[in-house]
């Protein structure tokens, strides 16, 4: 297991190096002139040329990449063109905001979908099963932005009991906690819909196993059958899927962040990419890749712990 982990960590290092170069090279292809972007459409060409040189953009791709890499390895990720602040500062701030949102969502989604999924799956084709299944498919099939607009129409425009945006500032007169309600609700419904279906089908599968029938026939109360025999096995398959939601929650919340004006990682990455803010795009991409790969390792390790048949 130690060897496996070490191997995977090495794997991550190599991948990060490759990704950092790819992002740098691909960014080169974006047809945006950074100097022009910074000075605006109305600056004259010679002013743009001067800034271009000042920023060292007239040097070769490799020279710039090498400089970037050397700085990054010594912990200096440069300064963001867009926010004119050290990348580390802005990245941690926005990533922090997203992690808070993602954390709350994760803490709500997992028990919420596990409960509904198990309830639905333990008695296949019962009324509860049908109701939950319909609910889950409806939620999962409405796009996040539409779900956001529906909830906004009801709770903000109609009832006026929740704030319409979540800039994480109390100057609007709404407490911070209230600004989390709608974003969390949208993510929970959208993502939960999908997870519920996954857990439900896994539970249905398990409930059909012979050992469940045996347990039931020997007179074990249904509640114990579900809790002691079915639950753990039913959660093994969805476990990886649940962990994969972490990726989505960290880098996939961009739509929700836009709808609710939430200052998070996804929105920051979108704006950095649109503004060709290479230092920020690089650091953000490396962060996202690290999160993805670390959750994969975590998933593998967790899988081993849950299912003794798997060993590396």
């Amino acid at each position: 297991m130690l060897r496996y982990t070490a191997k995977q960590l090495l794997n991550i290092a190599v991948t990060l190096l490759a990704v950092s170069f790819l992002v740098f090279a691909l960014n080169e292809l974006t047809p945006i002139d950074v100097a022009r972007k910074l000075l605006g459409p109305y600056a004259t060409q010679d002013q743009v040329d001067i800034l271009y040189k000042q920023m060292g953009l007239d040097r070769s791709l490799l020279a710039r990449y090498w400089e970037y890499l050397a700085n990054a390895l010594s912990g200096n990720f440069g300064e963001s063109n867009l926010y004119r602040r050290p990348v580390a500062e802005i990245l941690w701030d926005r990533l922090g905001n997203t992690l808070v949102l993602a954390g709350i969502c994760f803490a709500v989604i997992v028990p919420f979908s596990a409960l509904l999924g198990v309830l639905a799956g333990m008695r296949e084709r019962s009324f509860v099963d049908r109701a939950v299944s319909v609910f889950a498919s409806v939620c999962a099939s409405i796009p996040e932005f539409a779900l956001g607009v529906f909830l906004l129409a009801i709770f903000v425009v109609g009832l006026g009991i929740l704030p319409g945006t979540s800039p994480l500032s109390t100057s609007g007169g709404w407490p911070i906690w209230s600004q989390f309600v709608l974003p969390v609700a949208v993510v929970t419904l959208y993502d939960g819909g999908y997870l519920i279906s996954m857990i439900r089908s896994s539970m249905v599968e398990v409930m059909r196993q012979p050992y469940i029938r045996t347990a039931t026939l020997k007179g074990m109360p249904f509640r114990n059958v579900v809790v002691k025999h079915a639950l753990r096995n039913a959660l093994i398959t969805p476990f990886t899927v649940i962990l994969l939601q972490l990726n989505y929650l960290v880098s996939g919340l961009v739509v929700v962040e836009m709808v609710f004006a939430y200052p998070g990682f996804g929105r920051m990455m979108l704006e950095a990419a649109l503004n060709k803010d290479i230092a920020l795009v690089e650091a953000g991409a490396l962060c996202a890749v690290s999160v993805t790969m670390l959750t994969q390792i975590l998933g593998d390790l967790g899988y081993m712990a849950l299912d003794p048949r798997i060993r590396v």
Partner: peptide, 22 residues
């Protein structure tokens, strides 16, 4: 005087006005 960034989404600007956040 405060300036609050609501992003580029014009719907977010409307909901912020409606809920008196701006």
């Amino acid at each position: 005087f405060e300036i609050i960034d609501l992003g580029d989404d014009s719907a977010a600007q409307v909901t912020a006005l409606v809920s008196k956040q701006v």
